[in-house]
Amino acid sequence: MLEFRGVGRTYPGPPPVTALRPADLSVRRGDFVTVSGPSGSGKSTFLNIAGLLDTPTEGTCLLDGIDVGGLADADRTAVRGRRIGFVFQSFHLLPHRTAQENVELGMVYAGVPGRERAERASAALRDVGLGHRRAALPGRLSGGERQRVAIARALAVRPALLLCDEPTGNLDSATAETVLTLLDELNDQGMTLVMITHDQTVAARGSRRVTIRDGVLNESAPTAAR
């Protein structure tokens, strides 16, 4: 599904900064890949390239066999909107919009028609256990509920790949476990996940573990099944 072939990223200087050294990685359908490393190691650069938010300065990035690094910006944006869902640490919910409206807004850039947006949003909220909270504003939701709304927003576009950037970073341990259990369930249902985390306990949830240090990507031996 997602393949890095010698993908690297160097930002211009002076002096130039190599954030990600040439790396190979193949993410297959149904994988749950966790990516960990210290601050400044290259995790964000990796995520930005995987999520088509940035392009490599060397190598080839393929999504479903398409060289997305070679696409025009508008085409890359369209592919990202249709094929990739994002879940962030800080939720990024609009405070004056209900849970339902926040989920619907996530589909606007994917070009989903209005009536279908409402239907998909309702279904996605039910899938994450928040069908009864559709009309609630974010300020009336707990941290775990807000993160589940954010996950519903990502799922509503029916992505092939779900990218999670420190999705439990702002949550207490009990709430984080609830969110991680939901991600486990999504993966068990066939969703392909790539999750960035600094927490080694969270990293161990993945079926595959990748580490990045000083821009160098390495994959650990497969972990035991959950």
Score class of each variant (00 low, 15 high):
Leu52Ser: 03
Arg97Thr: 07
Thr10Ala: 09
Leu161Trp: 00
Asp214Gly: 11
Gln100Phe: 14
Pro38Asp: 08
Ala118Asn: 02
Val87Ile: 03
Leu193Gly: 03
Arg209Asn: 11
Ala136Asp: 12
Ala204Phe: 01
Arg29Ile: 10
Val33Asp: 00
Asp214Gln: 13
Ala23Ser: 14
Glu166Ala: 05
Ala124Val: 03
Asn218Asp: 15
Ser173Leu: 11
Ala204Cys: 01
Thr34Asp: 10
Gly6Ala: 01
Ala176Trp: 08
Ala121Trp: 09
Pro138Phe: 07
Ala121Ile: 09
Ala174His: 13
Leu62Glu: 02
Val202Phe: 02
Leu155Val: 11
Leu186Asn: 06
Ser207Pro: 07
Gly65Ala: 06
Ala224Lys: 11
Arg97Val: 07
Ser122His: 13
His198Met: 10
Phe46Asn: 12
Ser26Cys: 14
Tyr11Val: 12
Ala225Cys: 12
Ser122Arg: 15
Gly111Ser: 12
Leu125Gly: 08
Ser44Asn: 02
Ala174Met: 10
Thr60Ile: 14
Pro113Phe: 00
Cys61Met: 14
Gly143Glu: 02
Thr178Pro: 04
Ala176Gln: 12
Thr175Ser: 14
Phe86Tyr: 12
Pro22Val: 11
Glu166Phe: 10
Leu162Gln: 07
Met1Glu: 05
Leu52Arg: 00
Ala23Leu: 01
Gly13His: 10
Leu155Met: 13
Pro22Ser: 06
Arg146Phe: 04
Ile212Thr: 10
Thr178Lys: 11
Ala225Arg: 15
Leu137Pro: 04
Thr60Lys: 11
Ala99His: 04
Val103Ala: 03
Pro56Trp: 03
Asn218Lys: 15
Pro14Thr: 10
Ser173Thr: 15
Met107Val: 06
Glu101Asn: 04
Thr57Trp: 01
Gln189Asp: 14
Gly215Ser: 09
Pro167Gly: 06
Leu180Met: 15
Ala123Gln: 05
Lys43Glu: 01
Ser122Asp: 11
His198Asn: 10
Ala74Lys: 13
Gly69Ala: 06
Ala74Val: 11
Thr201His: 15
Cys61Asp: 07
Ala123Cys: 00
Val27Ile: 15
Leu71Trp: 06
Val68Ala: 05
Gly69His: 05
Phe46Met: 13
Val35Ser: 09
Asp214Ser: 14
Thr178Gln: 14
Leu180Gln: 12
Ala225Asp: 15
Ile84Thr: 05
Leu155Ala: 08
Ala121Val: 07
Leu25His: 02
Glu119Trp: 04
Val128Ile: 14
Arg226Cys: 04
Ser44Phe: 01
Pro95Met: 07
Pro38Asn: 03
Gln189Lys: 14
Gly42Tyr: 01
Gly190Lys: 04
Val27Tyr: 10
Leu93Asp: 00
Leu161Asp: 00
Leu155Lys: 07
Val202Asp: 08
Ala118Cys: 04
Leu94Ser: 11
Arg120Asp: 00
Leu2Ile: 12
Met107Lys: 03
Thr178Cys: 07
Arg9Phe: 05
Asn218Ala: 15
Glu219Arg: 13
Gln200Ala: 15
Pro14Leu: 09
Pro12Arg: 11
Ile212Tyr: 01
Val210Phe: 00
Cys61Arg: 12
Glu58Trp: 08
Ala154Asn: 10
Phe91Cys: 12
Val149Ser: 10
Pro222Trp: 00
Arg76Asn: 03
Val79Leu: 15
Gly169Gln: 08
Gly65Ser: 07
Arg158Ala: 12
Gly6Ile: 04
Leu130Glu: 02
Pro113Cys: 05
Glu166Pro: 04
Thr211Val: 13
Val27Thr: 10
Ala150Cys: 01
